[in-house]
Design a binder for these strands. Structure first.
Lengths: 138, 138
DNA sequence: CAAATTGCTTGCATATTGCAAGTGATTTTT
DNA sequence: AAAAATCACTTGCAATATGCAAGCAATTTG
């Protein structure tokens, strides 16, 4: 599969060993904020991930238990990718990235609207969304 | 130099376009938490970044104004890399990564000690360290 | 003033990413 | 029930990024 080498015991380094690439957090964003759950959903994202890269990233996320691969209830042809608690717990990181970007980039209004809640009440927003997402996986 | 293509207007995507690789946040960690400021300092880090990679990452961070390259006060042979406000503002992201790692990895005690403060009073810790770092760049 | 240090650059091997075109298993359409 | 479309990938190959080792010019140190 993949060679997973841990560069050090530093928490930042160890975390980046798992999701420190250009795509993993975008997949997690898709699942957390846009409820995407199938291979096709991810392929349709604005950033246009290549299909083979998507496959390897999904595998990696699954191996590290950030997501789970399940049978899709609607069809045998589909696969359901589902967030785990460990994956949902990346939300605070993603929110902080959004807030940083909000401070230093000019963002489209549609996106600013999504961020607005986290800006006004970060803790509350993260807690509420986390609770909602975790309720969904039980 | 480098081809910088913005994949989309998504804040997460745009941010990852800048620091979404395996090394950039480690350099920022070194500057924020360990007061590293020279090329040699970064090379000495536990993760053993290759010298050419370090050079390109520093250039990239500088181009995006996360760090500044200045004359070193002690010696003309040295270069001083200094955090900018934009760079210091990555601290909340790094702290959230540390807290996530603390939850899901077994970390060495020495590192747990550093994280402990952020765990007990995240907001206070981030604010205090941010203030301190920003005081240093004026 | 020779040796060491500092901050890189250069060349080359290996690994990762990206693109385009399949493929086989289902599912939908006719 | 056959044909077409959808779905989740895989495969081959080119382009790019990473990693390793050596080299180098400008200081600085002994």
């Amino acid at each position: 599969m993949k060679k997973i080498e841990k560069r050090s015991n530093c928490p930042v380094s160890s975390s980046l060993d798992i999701f420190g690439d250009k795509w993993s957090l975008l997949i997690m964003r898709d699942m957390i904020f846009y409820n995407k759950s199938t291979y096709g959903d991810f392929l349709k994202s604005e950033e246009k991930i290549a299909t083979n890269i998507l496959a390897t990233r999904l595998l990696n996320l699954e191996e590290h238990n950030l997501i789970e691969k399940l049978e899709h209830p609607d069809s045998k042809a589909k696969v359901l990718y589902k967030l785990t608690e460990k994956g949902i717990d990346l939300l605070p990181i993603i929110v902080e990235i959004q807030l940083w970007a909000d401070k230093y980039f000019t963002l489209p209004d549609a996106i600013k609207a999504i961020i607005e809640e986290g800006k006004k009440d970060k803790k509350g927003f993260i807690e509420a969304l986390t609770r909602q997402l975790k309720a969904n996986i039980r």
